[in-house]
Every structure is written in C-alpha cells, then in structure tokens.
Amino acid sequence: MAAPAPAGAIAADGRALSIRDLVKEYRPGQPVLAGVSLEIAGRGLTAVIGPSGAGKSTLIRCINRLVEPTSGRILFLGQDLAALRGAALRRARRHIGMVFQEYNLVERLSVMENLLCGRLGYVSAFRAWARRFDPADIERAFALLDTVGLGDFANRRADALSGGQRQRVGIARAVMQEPDLLLADEPTSSLDPKTAVEIMELMTRLAGARDIPVIVNIHNVELARRFSRRVIGLAGGKVVFDGVPESLTEADLNRIYGGENWQEAT
C-alpha cells in the first residue's frame, strides 16, 4: 500500500488510491454506496460505468468529500481523506482536480479568471479578490490555454464559450491545481459525440503528461472501452464488474445495467 508520500516528486504507486468499505447513506437504511472497496493504481484512466442512481457520482464525490461518506476509509497520499476536517481537508483537496458534467465555471468571469480559480487553495481570499495571483501561475495558465487550444480566449467571458470550449476550461482549471489525482463526473454527457471524444483525448493527454491517475464516471460504454485501462461497473451501490475493458462482455453489461432489452434498442 501507499507509504506516506514526500511532498515533492511522488512515485507512480505513491499516487495509488485505496477505498475501503465505503458506505454512503443519504437516508438511514438506504445505502447509495453499500460497502465499496477498490484499489486504484497510481496512473492510468479508470472508467466507472453504471446506470443512473448506481452511486457513481456519490463515489467520486466521496473521494474529495463534496459528499460526506457515512463510513469507510479513503487512503490517498498517506492520509485517510474520509477523516480530514477543515484546513487539512482543504489542503488535501488541492491535490485532487475535478472536472464536472456542467463545467461549473463562473459564467461572468473571464476564461483566465476561471483557470486561476484552480489556484484558490493556494491564494488568500484577498489576493484572489484583488486578482493578485502568482505571476508564475498566470504564466502557466496562458501556456495551458495554448495547450487546450484556447490561447486566444483568455479574456473572453466563460458564458461566451461553446460547451466543448467550456469543458476545456474546466479541465485546464483542474490541471492548474497541479493535481495528483483527477476526478471527472460525466465530463462528456453534455457534449456532442465528436466533442466528447476530443474531451476524453485531452483529459487522457494532460493526465498522461503529469502521469497521474484519472477516475471518470461515464455513461458512454464505448468511450469507457476506448479510453480506459480499467472499467469498474457499479450497480445498486456495489461493484459488480472490475476488469480491463477488453474483458467487458454483453453479459457483464446486462449485469451492470440490468435487463437485456436495452441493448437491442441501441
């Protein structure tokens, strides 16, 4: 298992994530996650598939504690994320980037300002308010905008962008954190098929460049197969499939999504 990692360079297995007996009940007695245990390697993209309501979103949000787990442990970088509070939790979150289905940008801020929001874990509220960000961060933001193909959009307002462009900003914002783990909650569900592939490629490329693990909730099984090195099937709050994408069979999909008729319709 992951040893407490040094602050600087982290070996690949130092970024491994270990989820143990994770339970989440929004209402007592009705678990959305019914004891999930997973060991996720310190690199590569893991796709989590499953029907709506299977607990995918809850699972991913328990990792960075946007959702409070009811019980269980989440070990990452030598800490139990589930036990952190206050400032320690905020420090841990700085190392975990997140990409959202609806991008979650501040519509009225510029692309540059949205990117710098990724640095809010490191910048005081006053400096953020006065826009006195670290010049090195600003340099990095410009470089990152070039990387995601939005070099000319730094001063545009976020609400002037298309869906695909907004998601690029969302990814760039997450990468601005210099994260050790990237979470993505249905990052392509609001996008057209071509843009969805581009977004998955961009995420894979940027995470590969940093050599960090990625966990993606995804509805599209084909995209999951194409981009992941591991697929986890979630149904009824439990892991019902776990393996390489090549081993995912029709029978497995039926087990994950329930029933058989749905496949004929597609």
Partner: peptide, 28 residues
C-alpha cells in the same frame, strides 16, 4: 448557481476565496 462554488471547494478554496471568486461575480 452553486455549481462554481462546488468546483472551488473541490479545488481546496477557503470560504473567503469562494466568496471572492464565485459569489461576488455572480451578484455584482
């Protein structure tokens, strides 16, 4: 909209940072 606030909390922002970058721009 609480969505940007969620994103900033996920990035480790303090409450003051959330107010400065997510709340103020939305009500200014």
């Amino acid at each position: 909209s609480l969505k940007p606030i969620e994103a900033m909390r996920a990035a480790g922002a303090s409450f003051g940072g959330v107010v400065a970058m997510a709340v103020v721009p939305q009500v200014l």
